[in-house]
Design a protein around this nucleic acid. Structure first.
Lengths: 257, 257
DNA sequence: GGATGTTCGAATGTTGACATTTCGACAACC
DNA sequence: GGTTGTCGAAATGTCAACATTCGAACATCC
């Protein structure tokens, strides 16, 4: 028996099953690798997260448990747990008996997030370089090439952003440090939010630097760990920080398209 | 009306009120600063955390929600939320429909935790140095002096550890970067667990290095940010890592006293 | 008029009951 | 003998109802 009525558009059991294909295996892996079940809390978190990135949930707006529970068709408990997940990611702030709100982004937040990110990326890049091999290198290289193709094809911002994030995710994956990945996930969603703003309001700079900077990182990583690589990783993040602070100070309110 | 029966030993309302005295104000602040209410989830998390540090909950042992709910006299929901808090701190691992367990500590975990900690501490120390002032310096100095007194008085390990942790907490506080503090809290409890092991099984080395290393950090911080300071902070953490890996590889099982 | 106390509604915090999944033991089969 | 299938207990995931808190509008008092 299921919790939800099967009369829904998609008559799947509520305890949803997620088939996660390992996206970047060596080509020898013929199909699915592991099956993960996550529960409604993660499902709810995904929906809410998406609505924040979409702009449907504006920064500062309240995320009421009953509303969300009704709109997502799950109980308040699951919504509550989902909101806790988003709070861990820094997308949401909640206070005692005052509910949860979408975070608001100020220049000082940019500094906080990107300063921490620089420290993490420094470690991740060096750790990844120490564990680099041909397959991983080729994988990263294909991502950079995809960036190039996307730029020539005049792809929209979200495509570029997805490739950008994927590149860095792979680095953390290669670093193979669970605690480091956890720390990254603590700022990742915020970084994505900021990069979204950056792409919206700075069409030129981002597109000019996307391929060269990532290509440089890749080249340095292929030569193993070095202080030069660490510096490059920090600078890659810090230049993004400077750009964002500049953008936000010029025009604090962000009119979404 | 209260949820709990007032017949308890401490007849306080369940929605407990916590008076947080700012512990290290400049002496001019006469008393309490802010009142925080946290809810039962945090309360439950505190209890469980303590039982992990005490050794009552051994590494790898299951933390059953019903048991904890009964023993803490709260509902399963609150225990559940508390366990989620501890999972955020890395003290607990939980899997879908398989419950939560106290983490087990292997040498590879030491490497993960202390590598990340080194990266965070590097940033925190430099940020703190940039915001250092006389009052904060004096505060840190008094902590180092307290360490010295504790050593001469042959204090037990937990006292030394508390001072050690307090020293580093103050650094993060001085850095005044919320995201950095969050990341630190993601490994802090694990660091504390490891340091507990270190103190238990290495009475000499830790006590010898406690004061000199912290004094060095303090001296360098007082001169403002520098690459030398960054290196010292990293090395301070990395030497702890090396010691712990050594200890754990010699004697993987830790017989608690 | 302005500050203070009160009341009320809307939201969250908490709880216990129910549905689902997991994992072991045991039996049946090849 | 080893593998496979079934059953059941024990645990977690989920839900809906209740208790508590917060904030603001209103009335009251100086």
């Amino acid at each position: 028996m299921w919790y939800r009525d099967p009369g829904d558009a998609s008559p799947v059991p509520v305890y949803d099953v997620h088939f996660c294909v390992v996206a970047h295996d060596d080509g020898k892996n013929s199909g699915m690798r592991r099956v993960r079940r996550r529960g409604l809390a993660h499902e709810a978190a995904d929906h809410i997260r998406e609505s924040i990135f979409d702009g449907r949930a504006a920064p500062g707006s309240a995320l009421r448990e009953v509303e969300l529970a009704a709109s997502l068709d799950v109980s308040r408990g699951s919504v509550r747990e989902g909101l806790a997940i988003l709070e861990r990611e820094g997308l949401v702030r909640s206070e005692w008996h005052r509910g949860a709100r979408v975070i608001e982004l100020s220049p000082s937040d940019v500094n906080e997030v990107y300063t921490v990110r620089a420290a993490l990326e420094r470690l991740a890049t060096i750790s990844a370089a120490a564990r680099m091999n041909a397959a991983r290198l080729a994988d990263l290289e294909s991502l950079v090439q995809a960036m190039g193709r996307a730029l020539e094809g005049d792809a929209d911002g979200s495509t570029l952003l997805a490739l950008d994030m994927a590149f860095h995710d792979r680095i953390y994956e290669t670093a193979a440090n669970g605690r480091l990945t956890d720390a990254w996930h603590g700022v990742r969603s915020q970084v994505r939010l900021f990069q979204l703003i950056r792409i919206e309001r700075d069409q030129v700079d981002y597109r000019d630097r996307l391929v060269p900077e990532h290509h440089d990182l890749l080249r340095l990583m292929s030569r193993g760990p070095s202080e030069e690589l660490a510096r490059a990783a920090e600078e890659h993040v810090d230049s993004a920080r400077r750009t964002l602070v500049h953008l936000l100070e010029r025009d604090p309110d962000h009119p979404r398209s």
